[in-house]
């Protein structure tokens, strides 16, 4: 190792930040599948006002999910030893998931 490389952060051999980043990616993928199924349910049969509203709502929830994941991924990429996830961040992600399920219940009934 050259003397100039001393200031570079030590890379975690377990690649923990990268694995966590990929876990977020997988989660957004699952969220996308659920949102697509939700939109399909909303626009099934004849298109109604309620269907379009719920469809827009699901799209918004999906965008929110992506934004949260993107924020966390940026934090994970910025530092070699990223801090723990903020509880508010985790709660927001869960609330978006719950909201998607509530949309689903409204559509199914």
């Amino acid at each position: 190792m050259s003397p100039g490389a001393v200031t570079e952060p030590v890379r975690d051999p377990g690649l923990q930040p990268e694995r966590t980043r990929l876990a977020w990616r997988r989660t957004t993928l699952s969220g996308t599948v659920a949102a697509v199924l939700a939109v399909k349910t909303a626009l099934h049969g004849q298109v109604s006002v309620v269907g379009i509203v719920v469809c827009a709502l699901c799209f918004g929830l999906w965008l929110g999910f992506l934004a949260l994941a993107h924020r966390r991924i940026r934090v994970l990429a910025a530092s070699a030893e990223p801090g723990a996830l903020a509880p508010r961040h985790a709660t927001a992600t869960v609330l978006l998931t719950v909201a998607l399920a509530v949309c689903g219940a409204a559509l199914v009934l």
Binding site: T27, S30, G31, V33, A34, L37, A38, K40, T41, T97, L100, A101, G104, L107, V108
Partner: peptide, 10 residues
């Protein structure tokens, strides 16, 4: 959880 919700839609 998302898979279960997706399953509900499916």
């Amino acid at each position: 959880a998302l898979a279960l919700i997706g399953g509900g839609f499916a």
